[in-house]
């Protein structure tokens, strides 16, 4: 045994405060004397602890075997019940296999291994003064050997070349990461003059007459799902369609002609950070974003009435075509979705 370990008792200096009123602070009394456990003094208690540990190990072994048997005996036969049963068997087997083993080991350590506290000494992290002086000297010697102090040109060259060396790795990496970097795509959506509004996800065009007051539809441009970059386009172009009593709308509002007979189409992409604004409260005419509860008033140009969004939902100007289907008058007149630095440029 190494000498730095001393048995538990009597580590501290026993100057007791009670006898000496002059001390500034109490002195550390040293370790508490060791109290033996049942298993230390009673052979049958020790035997019992051993039996308990063995039992736990045995449970562990049985459970592990059970899990493997379950793996082979329970087929996944296209029923959810079989998936559940297989999951349960494997999981409980694995779990008890692990748990039994762990509990046994800890029980053994706690009851049968020595619980006499031992002491190691600590030493300061700091090296001794000699070691430090030696280290400084070594570094000085090394630096002198390299000649870096005497050759400033070399110093500059090393730093310069080292700074540039990562670039051939970083530039191609970052350069490719952004794809075509064409951020102007954020300004346009798939909506065009005359493009029909279709129900998401069935892609059926919507007749104005079929939109009843109080109803709400999730809408995308007709035929979008056949196009390239379908998800990217859908992520910008989705629209909510609501119909309110036209008397609720202000006829003199700026974009009164963007609605059709009380039917209004707003971008479904929240102007906060972009969740789909999916909830509609009929009585209040409020659209609610489920992510952070920004609330928009559809009778007032989808202005924000509460929540963390600042801007109204962009409105899609709509009309009806000859066959009575709802169509767009054109694209949105501003970028949809969350704010970004150059969105108004």
């Amino acid at each position: 045994m190494s000498s730095k370990q001393t048995p538990a008792q009597g580590a501290g200096v026993g100057v007791r405060g009670r006898d000496s009123g002059t001390l500034e602070r109490f002195e550390n009394p040293g370790l508490h004397p060791h109290k033996p456990r049942q298993a230390d003094i009673n052979a049958s208690a020790a035997k019992r602890a051993e039996r308990q540990a063995v039992t736990l190990f045995a449970i562990s072994a049985l459970a592990s075997v059970g899990a493997v048997v379950g793996y082979f005996m329970i087929p996944l036969d296209q029923t959810v019940a079989s998936v559940r049963l297989s999951n349960l068997t494997l999981g409980v087997g694995l779990g008890l296999g692990m748990l039994g083993f762990g509990l046994a080991a800890v029980h053994w350590a706690k009851t049968l291994m020595s619980d006499v506290e031992r002491i190691d000494e600590r030493h300061d992290q700091r090296g001794s003064d000699e070691t430090r002086a030696e280290a400084v000297q070594l570094l000085k010697d090394g630096a002198a050997d390299s000649g870096i102090a005497r050759r400033p040109l070399l110093k500059g060259a090393v730093v310069g070349a080292l700074a540039l060396a990562p670039l051939p790795f970083i530039v191609p990496l970052v350069g490719n990461l952004g794809g075509d970097w064409d951020v102007s795509k954020l300004r346009h959506t798939a909506w065009r003059k005359g493009r029909r509004l279709a129900i998401d996800p069935t892609d059926t065009p919507i007749r104005a007459a079929d939109v009843t007051v109080g109803s709400i539809f999730s809408v995308m441009p007709e035929g979008l799902s056949e196009e390239e970059h379908y998800l990217e386009e859908k992520a910008k172009a989705v629209v909510v369609l609501v119909r309110v009593d036209p008397r609720e709308l202000d006829e003199n509002a700026e974009h009164a002609d963007w609605a059709y007979d009380g039917i209004l189409a707003f971008s479904k992409i929240c102007t906060h950070v972009g969740c789909p604004v999916a909830l509609y409260e009929q009585q209040t005419h409020h659209l609610l974003c489920p992510c952070h509860q920004s609330t928009f008033d559809v009778t007032d140009g989808a202005k924000v009435v509460f929540g963390p969004a600042k801007r109204p939902l962009p409105q899609l100007p709509i009309a009806v075509d000859d066959e009575g289907y709802l169509v767009a008058q054109g694209d949105f007149d501003e970028p949809v979705g969350p704010s970004f630095w150059e969105r108004l440029k």
């Binding site: 409980v92 694995l94 779990g95 692990m98 039994g100 083993f101 762990g102 080991a105 800890v106």
Partner: peptide, 21 residues
């Protein structure tokens, strides 16, 4: 070693039972 090693199996066991149930 026994306590810490055993404790690994306990943590794994508890997680496995959670995953099972």
């Amino acid at each position: 070693m026994a306590k810490a090693g055993g404790f690994f199996f306990i943590v794994f066991g508890v997680l496995a039972l959670m995953g099972a149930t």
